[in-house]
Design a protein around this nucleic acid. Structure first.
Length: 113
DNA sequence: GACTTGACTAGAC
DNA sequence: AGTCTAGCCAAGT
């Protein structure tokens, strides 16, 4: 299993309407310093992988190449309901939490009385 | 193996 | 707020 294959597999699990950052995905793969390689892996991704759901740490879109437009990615995200503010995805609301999101809410047990 | 290339990022101005 | 820089490292030559 190459790193590239692991990245593509993980990106396929990002649900519609959510985004993840390069660094976040790298950390999920237990390779926290390989953010650049996540981008590199996405370079040749086919239509089967939702590459548009990956943005940089600032929530903005990174250019795929000199000529490539960033509009395609933004339009795709907005069509899924992702909201941009001042050119950035509102990460606080749309970041994919990964497996942590489905963890039991043990915090709700605490009561006042 | 020794370079080279970047869809990156945190920190420092 | 933006702009630079150094460090990063999987893949491709």
């Amino acid at each position: 299993m190459t790193f590239r294959a692991a990245v593509l597999e993980l990106v396929r699990r990002i649900p519609r309407g959510r985004v993840a950052t390069y660094g976040q995905l790298a950390a999920m793969l237990r390779r926290p310093r390989s953010a650049r390689q996540v981008g590199q892996a996405l370079r040749g991704a086919d239509d089967g992988v939702p590459w548009h759901r990956v943005v940089n740490a600032q929530g903005s879109i990174s250019r795929r190449s000199r000529t490539a437009s960033m509009m395609t990615q933004r339009i795709r995200l907005e069509q899924e309901g992702v909201v941009f503010r001042r050119g950035r995805v509102v990460l606080a609301r749309f970041r994919w939490q990964g497996v942590a999101a489905r963890r039991p809410r043990d915090f709700a047990v605490r009561q006042i009385g």
